[in-house]
Design a protein around this nucleic acid. Structure first.
Lengths: 110, 110
DNA sequence: GCAACAGTTTGACGCTCGTCAAACACTAGG
DNA sequence: CCTAGTGTTTGACGAGCGTCAAACTGTTGC
């Protein structure tokens, strides 16, 4: 009878710009942000995120950083976790920031 | 009679979003950004930047990170270096980002 | 020439970060 | 139950960061 729950996350008013920028200042987490930009919920499986080259525990670590920075929210449903972007919260706290970041569409192919 | 020169910096087209975010994901460098937001040139003296608590070599390090990320430009004039924001370059490469950052950033110290 | 000045560079220190591997917790399904 | 599936936690490791102190480079002005 497990109702859906959300993993702990900072309140909207507590979102800190420097923390958010530090969270996004990593190529893996930026890639996750782009995956989440569609507004949908995503599982944590690295293969669903174009991160086959990373261990699942590494991806879990990055998703924790994003959640604790307030970038994402995680809904727990059974043995799955569904991660999605806190778009309205971010837009409230940092108007225009998310749009500017996503518009900058980082697609660097080294 | 040394003519003014600029320290090496990345070209506008080479600015990388993740690198910029990583550069700004530090409280000291965010404070520097806010100081530079007035568009003026600033010396490197920590006392002119509200950073009395930091050693000058530490401030020099942070300014190098900002410059190498493409956030700032440094003009060399004699024994002084004048640092300023690459506002138009950043606006070209990442439209709206700087405005969103400055609008959301913590209040600048008087 | 020389001393004061404005910054940078180097080296050292502790600390954090990104990564992997292995062990763990919890759920779902036979 | 038992097992397979999904994700987290822990520990280890190397690499990098932020900081300071000291030495250094180059400039200005006496």
């Amino acid at each position: 009878m497990t109702e859906d729950e959300r993993l702990p996350q900072p309140a909207t008013a507590d979102l800190d710009l420097v923390t958010v920028l530090a969270a996004l200042g990593d190529p893996v987490r930026m890639r996750l942000l782009l995956s989440y930009a569609d507004g949908a919920e995503h599982s944590c499986d690295p293969r669903n995120l174009g991160l086959d080259h990373l261990h699942k525990s590494t991806v879990s670590h990055h998703m924790r950083v994003l959640r604790e920075a307030g970038v994402t929210t995680t809904r727990v449903a059974g043995r799955n976790r569904f991660v999605s972007l806190r778009r309205t919260d971010l837009d409230t706290r940092f108007p225009g920031l998310l749009d500017a970041l996503l518009a900058a569409a980082p697609l660097p192919a080294p």
